[in-house]
Amino acid sequence: MSTEQVNVTINGLSHSLDVEARRTLADVIREDVGLTGTHLGCEHGVCGACTILLDGQPARACLMLAVQADGAEITTIEGLADGDEMHPVQRAMKEAMAFQCAFCAPGFLMSTVALLEENPNPSAEEIRKELSGNLCRCTGYQSIVAGVETAVRLLSSTGTAGVNQ
């Protein structure tokens, strides 16, 4: 067993953590930092529920050791809202009634934020392609695609998809 010190910034707060090297970033975010919004659906990198932003880019938190994130800036679902004010992507998903059980929602939201940051006006096909890395078993995806389209609309009036930090 080897324990390593990991310094990360999560949702704007810096954390200095001693973690066993084998532990994934997802487990450490959930268990040590207590941010349980990042979900584990498959733990082998397919379902996308654990998607976070790593230095602004989407990544699977289950396919990273926490030690690999040393020095990184991480955003989780809990870091999107500005206080009580939902992020436009969150508001859009609510408006579109995008989700049902919503276990997958954190991953979809993070993927959407990343997508719209890079491509503020994606086509429906581009949205579907980008979100195909996230599995949802409830909705058939149509409402989630509509949610992204709603986010495009909300963001075009309020600015960027980025995250306040």
């Binding site: 979900h39 989700f99 929602a105």
Partner: peptide, 16 residues
Amino acid sequence: DDRFLVGKGHFVADVQ
């Protein structure tokens, strides 16, 4: 959605 979309859902693995 007021809890789900901000990461405040409370699923069994979140009980801890």
